[in-house]
């Protein structure tokens, strides 16, 4: 899926989000991210839990205020902290699909109300128009129009995720953040939802940030892949290249940890287990954030923070001293 990169639709510069947890301590959830998303591409964002993927997605959409840094949408600077009016303005352009299809739908609203709410809040749409559009979208995501009057508990996980997709896309956004949209679903249903999103993306010309911790799935859906570790990005590049030829030691381990559904390969493969766990984002270590778990660590790594630098002769960017 190595296609040409289009115009940048979204740019992040030094984007940072720290959470104040008192006693002058801060959780460095997102720390100085520079990333560009091009028009009509799917950018996969991977990393362990606690690496700040979801927070980054929320900050980009304004669901979390920025501590510092900026986000530009088609060259226009987005507000530091969103007010009601800002949400009104941007919700038509940017939307989010949430991870958990069980807790992200209001159990007291019917599916019709959930999917149509975005349109209702937008002025200039009549009730019958909303109803027609909701019916239309339910069909588009593979549900039926008579599902409109039912409540979320009457649906399975896969169907609920479809409701979440319809709710996000009914406003016809150009840019959607999908926060682990399939991790709560069964294997056979995951593929259904992935293919549905692929179809809709093609039809509507969407640009997506696809957040997941399942690397093999991300490789299937994304054009480019960005690997996050402890609030910062360690590697960005074309999805297949990052997956099959990882450069950063962390990416290598992440790819290697993913068990493959092939017993002969699994038996042959040397164990690539990494020691320890992701450190607390409260006391972020000096130097390279991965240094204390890195199998290839050098003296320099613990003192100097590596920058995300493009590799020679490729569009891959890696933040590691060993490669620069």
């Amino acid at each position: 899926m190595g296609k040409l990169v289009g115009e940048p639709i979204l740019e992040m510069g030094n984007l940072t989000r720290h959470f104040d947890i008192g006693r002058k301590q801060f959780v460095h959830a997102v720390d100085g991210i520079n990333l560009t998303v091009s028009e009509k591409e799917i950018l996969g964002l991977v990393g362990e839990s606690g690496s700040g993927k979801s927070t980054l997605g929320k900050v980009v959409l304004g669901l979390e205020p920025k501590t510092s840094g900026w986000v530009k949408y088609r060259g226009e600077l987005l507000p530091q902290k969103y007010k009601a009016r800002d949400f009104q303005k941007w919700s038509g352009k940017m939307q989010m699909i949430f991870q958990d299809p069980y807790s992200s739908l209001n159990p007291r609203m019917t599916v019709g109300e959930i999917v149509g709410e975005g349109l209702r809040l937008r002025s200039g749409t009549t009730k019958s128009q909303i109803k027609d559009k909701v019916a239309d979208w339910l069909l588009k995501v593979g549900l039926q129009t008579d599902h409109m009057s039912r409540y979320p508990h009457e649906f399975s996980g896969g169907q609920r995720q479809r409701i979440g997709i319809a709710r996000a896309l009914i406003l016809e956004p150009e840019f959607v953040v999908c926060d682990e949209p399939i991790s709560a679903l069964d294997v056979s249903v995951q593929a259904q939802v992935i293919n549905l999103m692929g179809d809709l993306k093609e039809k509507l010309g969407l640009t997506l940030i696809f957040i997941a911790h399942d690397l093999s799935m991300v490789r299937y859906v994304s054009d480019r892949m960005a690997v996050m570790y402890l609030g910062s990005i360690v590697e960005v590049g074309k999805a297949d290249e990052v997956y099959f030829d990882p450069k950063h030691p962390y990416t290598e381990i992440l790819v290697g940890s993913n068990p493959e559904p092939d017993p002969n390969l699994e038996r042959k493969r040397a164990s690539t287990t990494i020691k320890g766990e992701i450190p607390s984002p409260v006391n972020v270590p000096a130097g390279c954030r991965f240094a204390n778990r890195c199998p290839k660590v050098e003296e320099n790594c613990k003192r100097v923070t590596p920058k995300l630098i493009p590799l020679k002769d490729s569009d891959r960017q890696v933040a590691c001293h060993l490669l620069n």
Partner: peptide
């Protein structure tokens, strides 16, 4: 329905229809 690590495999998953 599961993704594999095979680079030659086509990049479309075949879900099991229905439930």
């Amino acid at each position: 329905a599961m993704p594999t690590n095979d680079p030659d495999k086509q990049s479309v998953l075949s879900p099991i229809p229905g439930s």
